[in-house]
Design a binder for these strands. Structure first.
Lengths: 233, 233
DNA sequence: GTGCTTCCCTGCACGGCGTGCAGTGACGGC
DNA sequence: GCCGTCACTGCACGCCGTGCAGGGAAGCAC
């Protein structure tokens, strides 16, 4: 890599780092090209040499942050033995909530309307990273599937064509035996985790309960139970 | 009411109506004082006679929209006979999703980061309206509680002090027999509906499944089943 | 070493935003 | 019929994203 290219990569990385720092301290709205440039001793126009538009920068940030979240939950999952599917799900779920509460701006960036007028530009950031999230959950479900199967009396209600082709490809390659209903279950499990965490991050639980942690633990336990898994070996 | 007061109320209502119209056609970001004023043939400063600040206007809108959503789901619930708790829950859940998909901007307004730099101003809009939502769900749970009880082995794990005092007051008045665990269950049920709908509204399901409706129906059915209720009488 | 090319960055402009504030004019209450 | 209240305008300030012309340094070819 030439010196030019190296400098370029460094500057690009610094832009993203500064943007994340600004977001962490001032909320997602604090991400403005002018503020970033000010922080870096540049002018706003200079950033256009690195990102075609503000939304492009945001999109890149979303991918970075989403990747960080997935790294965290996957690491937590892999910290629990293969033979303990319930434990792996709980680890994933707990880390998902902890990361989200620790990085609320990141969560909003990924799952909400992050920034003033941000519109996903052409295809958006989600497909690939979102697929990774879904695939990770499908893996968890695959471990639990032998126990969970009885809860899915309508296996044949789902076809592979109900799902995104790329997601299907990845899933069938890694879990050839798994029926499409398992992917549906994975999505529903995802949503159950997302529901409580999302309400909490956006402050909707604050006016209702004083112990959202207890609530979440109960939900995760209930979820694991509903999968037919023993609570915690 | 004097003529002055009437004109004032009309103008105030028009501001809100125009704001909602702008939001409906151009997304939440389209709500700008200048745009509203332009639409009304005024200048932006004039609005400050009605709302102290832009965020005050937004807060009022949130309350209005939230109320509209609650009116819709409660009406749907009341369209099903008292003796059919499962049907009432399903009606609530289905209407919740349909309203949200039909008013995605409204959903974002209520449950997300609605608008550029909006910060909930002092106490925010949620407490009372959020309590109404939670109370409505608690009512649904109260109907189902005789069946659901066996699913709550840890009734004593929750105290009334775990919850918001106002919510507790309302709940205890309307359902004197209900234990605090039922409120926790109501919050979890809320979160299960919210999870899938939120993911769908924000487009995160689009890259995964092609039939989010089927997914949601399965989730609601599973939820009703988990409460120990017969599917659909 | 010299000259050319590439490319990063500045400076400025435009229009849009929320928000204050002085001034103006119409209307309601007495 | 006067006076005070009050809705509204016009303007200013400082933010914002985004284009564009131009300068200047760094890299490359000979």
């Amino acid at each position: 890599m030439s010196r030019r290219a190296r400098l370029r990569a460094e500057t690009s990385a610094e832009i993203k780092a500064v943007a994340l720092a600004l977001m962490a301290e001032g909320g997602p709205d604090a991400i403005s090209l002018r503020a970033i440039a000010r922080e870096m001793g540049m002018t706003a126009g200079a950033i256009y040499g690195y990102f075609a538009t503000r939304d492009d920068l945001i999109t890149t940030l979303i991918n970075d942050v989403y990747t960080a979240l997935l790294d965290a939950v996957e690491a937590a999952r892999d910290g629990v033995a293969d033979g303990d599917p319930a434990g792996r799900i709980v680890a994933w779920a707990q880390t998902f909530r902890e990361w989200s509460l620790g990085n609320p701006e990141g969560f909003r960036l990924i799952y909400g309307d992050p920034v003033p007028g941000y519109k996903v530009p052409e295809g958006g950031p989600a497909p690939e990273t979102g697929n990774r999230a879904c695939a990770g959950l499908t893996g968890l479900i695959a471990d639990a599937w032998p126990h969970a199967e009885r809860l899915q009396p309508s296996d044949d209600a789902y076809q592979w064509s109900d799902f995104d082709p790329h997601l299907v490809e990845v899933t069938q390659e890694r879990f050839p035996e798994l029926p499409p209903a398992a992917v549906a279950l994975a999505l529903r499990v995802w949503a159950r985790m997302h529901g409580l965490v999302s309400l909490e991050v956006y402050g909707h639980l604050r006016g209702q309960t004083r112990d959202p942690d207890k609530l979440y633990r109960a939900e995760v336990l209930s979820l694991v139970g509903a999968l037919g898994l023993p609570p915690a070996p």
